[in-house]
């Protein structure tokens, strides 16, 4: 087991290195940062001087080595456009993104699981079909349009929810939270729904199909035969069994929720990392882009590692990767 974890850790490090390499190579080709750093009247000589000072004229390998060495220390330098340390900026923006992602994941779970259970148990009920169809509509529209329509309805026409931002945030020193004020909570509603809708559908359908499978197993048939109530069977036994895949999938989806927050954050001007990243793409702010990518990669690798380890613990039938090749 320990050997397995160590091997996976080493692999994770390798993955991070490869990501760093890819990120670095790609950034070599994304636009010219100089134009974004200076005004339009800056002379060519001044531009060239800046390029040299930034190290953009050094040999590629030197630039790469410098990049990886710095990245390992979570030092991504200074943002071209904001002239602030990137790691600081990312850390400042992280709470906003993580709160939004967590809340929408919880929203998706709280609404998605009961809907999934219901549609699994009552396959033929009209309400089940309604749930299934409506949830499909939710993923049949591009998220940005859903966001704009929500703003249109709830902010502009009904004027009951804010159209942008996080509302009043409370600074806890290391973390700025919008969960402690009324305006902060109100500001979360529309973005969380926009972001969570896709996951909701996913979870609902996953729970449904798992329920369908579990309900057919001998184990459940025995439970029924033992005379347990329908309720006890459904929730005590069947649902419990569906939870492992649901939690795994949600865990794995967390990374993509964070990434998809880019769109939600853009539509709602949510001051998180995704918005920062998109702006940095538009402004070719390479240090921010690099830091964001590496952070997302890191989150993914960690989540993957945990899921892998949980898998082997939960289900010993799963062969340890690379352990037994034929």
């Amino acid at each position: 087991m320990t050997a397995f974890i160590i091997r996976r850790l080493l692999q994770a490090v390798l993955v991070m290195l490869v990501v760093a390499l890819i990120a670095f190579l790609m950034f070599r080709f994304v636009g010219d940062p100089i134009n974004q750093m200076v005004g339009i009247e800056t002379t060519p000589e001044q531009r060239e001087a800046l390029r040299v000072r930034l190290g953009l004229r050094d040999p590629i390998l030197v630039q790469l080595a410098r990049f990886i060495w710095n990245a390992a220390q979570f030092n991504f330098g200074t943002s071209y456009q904001f002239k602030q340390p990137v790691s600081e900026m990312i850390l400042q923006r992280m709470p906003a993104t993580l709160e939004l992602s967590m809340v929408s994941a919880i929203f998706a779970l709280i609404v998605g699981i009961p809907m999934g259970v219901y549609t699994g148990i009552r396959r033929e009920a009209w309400l089940s079909k309604l749930f299934l169809t409506v949830s499909l509509v939710g993923i049949s529209l591009p998220p940005f349009l859903i966001g704009i329509l929500l703003i249109f309805i709830f902010a502009v026409n009904l004027q009951i929810l804010p159209s942008f931002g996080r509302g009043q945030v409370v600074d806890l020193g290391f973390w700025s939270t919008g969960l402690l004020t009324v305006s902060g909570l109100k500001a979360l509603i529309l973005p969380a729904i926009t972001l969570g809708l896709f996951q909701l559908t996913l979870i609902m359908r996953l729970v449904r199909s798992e329920m369908l499978e579990v309900l057919r197993t001998d184990y459940i048939k025995f439970a029924r035969a033992r005379g347990l109530t329908e309720r006890a069977v459904n929730f005590g036994h069947a649902l419990k069994n569906t939870m492992i895949p649901v939690i795994t999938v949600t865990g794995l989806q967390l990374g993509s929720i964070i990434a998809f927050a880019i769109i939600t954050e853009t539509v709602f001007q949510w001051p998180g990392m995704g918005l920062l990243f998109l702006q940095s793409v538009q402004n070719v702010d390479i240090p921010i882009m690099a830091a964001y990518l590496m952070l997302i990669a890191f989150l993914f690798v960690v989540i993957n590692l945990i899921v892998d380890i949980l898998y082997t613990v939960v289900d010993p039938r799963v062969r340890l990767d690379g352990g037994a090749a034929v």
Binding site: V15, V18, V19, I22, M26, F29, V30, G31, L252, G255, S256, A259, F260, I262, I263, V281, L293, I296, A297, F300, V301, N304
Partner: peptide, 20 residues
């Protein structure tokens, strides 16, 4: 795993940039 690390949106933004 590495692939999953890069959600589609990021991939598209990056590839678009590289191609150009």
């Amino acid at each position: 795993d590495i692939q999953l690390t890069f959600p589609s949106i990021l991939i598209a933004l990056l590839i678009d940039g590289v191609v150009h």
